[in-house]
Design a protein around this nucleic acid. Structure first.
Lengths: 208, 208
DNA sequence: GGAATTTTAATGACTTTTGAGTCATTATCT
DNA sequence: AGATAATGACTCAAAAGTCATTAAAATTCC
């Protein structure tokens, strides 16, 4: 019955265990279990620290959650934007390059975790949805709109309903991310093949 | 301080409050908040009953959760299957009919709730993911594969990478469902237009 | 440069809160 | 009148959040 024995025994590491590590551990846990089902103790364990340490950097579980999502929300689409504005060649090659880059960067990455979190927790965190929509989604739509506009001007893309709905171009990407998150065990996607097929159907679907 | 006052005051309704009502209320709450964050009290309130009543029909919160998802998992794709096998006309009209039917039936329906639940809770309920994959996803893929095969045989669809990846055809549908769940407030989808564009790009993307 | 001292980081036992699950009591049905 | 359905106050376990205590780092002083 040696129980009442207050105080800690072995505070070890120093220097590391920075907020960044907590954010990373938090992302990994939240992406799997969501906000409510994730225990701070799990995050602490994954980060190799004690639960109490989290409270030195974040006010509450929810505060940590917000910080986690915000920290991964911005993600640079700038490279793609630049690709589009500077690209000299034909539209099909440009689209191929942009889509390839997006797959490489997103499928199976931290970003897919953020997307799952957003879908799951969106209703209780409209603020986060708002930021994501502004920072990521609508930027993506803008880039795709540019590609289409450019293609129409060059006479490579036909104008029509499809050209007015840029979300169609990225739909297969979103689906691949979610498929990978959800059905990887049952029925894994071969990303190479899928990407090839994606580019193929989009190029034929839009071409003049 | 009139607190300790055991026993109930007003058991009201009889006859209604059947398991079905609890399942419906459960679906609505679970779809918004997920398993962990949903309180049985919320479900009870939505169903217009007391918390204890739930335990007459379900053993535990998790048992109710499983029952909720299972109850909405099967959903008939049979009508679409039948459409495909019996359809006499050209592929574009068939595809138009099938896609229109899917949008009408799925976007904004109970099914979108189930899809959100599956994405959110999948990692902790691989059994449910398994059932959904077998009962819904792979059936959907089969139907689309039939359409494509039929189209190739009739000389209306070109063979190629896109024809080997039927998931591409339904990707915009999935995206519309999730977009509606997540970004309705920021940026609602006009389903009529979106569907038109979807059919347009797919038909051009696949046509011979 | 290094011992002594102050400041800051980290710990985990403890407290508090929250919500799942129970059950004695009461209404309604047969 | 007996059986069944429903209730909500209550119990209890689990996890969020606190804090006295200790380790390590930074600073001061000689």
């Amino acid at each position: 019955m040696t129980k009442i024995e207050t105080g800690p025994q072995k505070p070890k590491r120093r220097k590391a265990a920075r907020p960044g590590e907590i954010l990373q551990a938090g992302l990994e846990e939240f992406a799997i279990s969501g906000l409510a089902a994730t225990r701070l103790e799990d995050i602490a364990q994954r980060a190799g620290i004690a639960k109490g340490t989290i409270y030195r950097y974040f006010d509450s579980k929810e505060d940590l959650f917000m910080a986690v999502v915000r920290s991964r929300l911005v993600l640079s689409l700038d490279q793609f934007e630049e690709m589009v504005t500077n690209y000299p060649g034909p539209t099909d090659a440009l689209l191929r390059q942009v889509l390839t880059g997006i797959y490489k960067q997103f499928v199976g990455s931290d970003i897919s975790g953020v997307i799952r979190i957003l879908i799951s927790e969106g209703p209780r965190f409209p603020g986060l949805v708002d930021i994501y929509h502004k920072e990521v989604t609508s930027k993506g739509v803008t880039i795709l709109t540019h590609i289409i506009k450019r293609g129409i001007e060059r006479g490579e893309i036909r104008d029509g309903p499809a050209a007015r709905e840029p979300r169609l171009i990225m739909a297969p990407t979103i689906m691949a991310i979610l498929w990978d998150l959800t059905f990887k065990a049952q029925d894994p996607i071969d990303i190479e093949e899928y990407l090839t097929a994606h580019i193929d159907i989009i190029l034929h679907g839009l071409s003049a």
